[in-house]
């Protein structure tokens, strides 16, 4: 790592392969473990059947558990983890604020409000599968980001760390109150909304995973290609403008991608907080702040983090299940205090 090239250049094929292998290993571990533990050989056999599309005549236990329940859920966990972490890393760079994240800025809360409205009032875009919650969550996420940032710029053009987080907290409170208001009028749908709102990947489906994968491919791809601009932003917006970054266009591009990713994640898994805050902090000591390395590392790191969190949620109190949001919040807040504390001491 002392080599000059690794210090300034992005992820090479070797790094990508290494991270993919690690993610795959954790993925397999999570597939095998659960309220029912499956031997690796059976799991792999079931995988082969699912991938080739053949339904064995005598379905094994592994196949019956994996195909309808566990596999889509784990796919969703890894994809949401990757998407949320990428968003966190991008926002921390764009706003030059190490505390920025969908949950601290109130974007997740905003997306939740959108999704809750759509569940409670049952509106949807005709012709699109589960479009109601997803589209309204994405739109609400974008509007939230726009509101929070325009307020922050108006109050303090330098976007200092504290101002924007404070606005995010106030906004979260306001939006949560509105969510609760909607829930009180939701009648018989209260239970669905409440459980979903705590953050749960239970009952996710293949179409969910496909939607996540497509969004991650498109928006995540765009974000990864914006790494150099994000480097400039995280050194300072003035400096970014001086070196020739189209500040407004890049900011809009990042905000749209982040809103889409967070909106989709929230509509599928509820508000799973802290993932986007913690993962970039965990990988930064390994990669440094350069987004060319930080973003891909956060992508894989986030997948691994959420896979493990989901594993805990499924197994710790098995056969009962914890909402994954509870697990990430507990683990995340402890980790965050630890990082904050050690960071302080080093200075």
């Amino acid at each position: 790592m002392k080599n000059k090239n690794t210090a300034t250049h992005g992820f090479g094929p070797k790094e990508y392969l290494l991270c993919a292998a690690a993610t795959l290993a954790v993925f397999l571990l999570c597939v095998c473990l659960g309220s029912v533990n499956l031997p690796l050989a059976d799991t792999l056999a079931a995988f082969r059947d699912i991938l080739t599309g053949t339904v064995p005549e005598e379905t094994t236990l592994a196949y019956r558990i994996l195909q309808p329940v566990r596999l889509p859920r784990i796919l969703c966990a890894s994809l949401s983890g990757a998407a949320l972490s990428l968003c966190g890393a991008c926002m921390q760079g764009l706003l030059k604020n190490p505390l920025a994240d969908g949950s601290t800025l109130g974007v997740s809360a905003g997306a939740s409000l959108g999704a809750i409205c759509s569940i409670a009032f049952g509106f949807s875009v005709p012709g699109l599968l589960f479009s109601g919650t997803m589209v309204s969550a994405v739109i609400a996420a974008f509007i939230s980001l726009a509101i929070i940032l325009s307020f922050a710029y108006r109050l303090d053009a330098s976007l200092s760390t504290n101002t924007i987080i404070l606005i995010g907290i106030v906004y979260s409170m306001l939006v949560s109150a509105m969510s609760n208001l909607v829930i009180t009028f939701a009648g018989d749908r209260v239970k669905t909304i409440t459980f979903w709102n705590m953050g749960s990947l239970q009952g996710t489906s293949y179409p969910n995973a496909a939607a996540l994968a497509i969004c991650l491919l498109v928006c995540g791809g765009i974000l990864l290609l914006t790494a150099e601009e994000l480097n400039a932003f995280s050194i300072g917006e003035e400096n970014a403008r001086s070196i020739g970054v189209n500040v407004r266009a890049v900011r809009l591009r990042v905000l749209i991608c982040v809103s889409i990713l967070i909106g989709v994640c929230v509509s599928i898994g509820g508000s799973i907080s802290f993932v986007g805050l913690i993962t970039p902090h965990l990988v930064r000591p390994l990669t440094g702040p350069n987004h060319k390395r930080l973003l891909p590392a956060s992508l894989f790191g986030g997948a691994i983090f959420l896979l493990l969190a989901d594993l805990c949620a499924r197994t710790i109190l098995a056969p009962r299940e914890l909402p994954i949001g509870v697990v990430t919040s507990i683990v995340g807040s402890i980790l965050f205090v630890h990082i904050f504390y050690t960071g302080r001491k080093q200075r």
Binding site: K4, A7, T8, G93, K96, N97, P98, N231, S234, I235, G236, N239, G288, P289, N290
Partner: peptide, 11 residues
């Protein structure tokens, strides 16, 4: 120049 992250001088 208020800098927040530990970029290297070269970067």
């Amino acid at each position: 120049h208020y800098v927040g992250y530990g970029f290297t001088v070269e970067e």
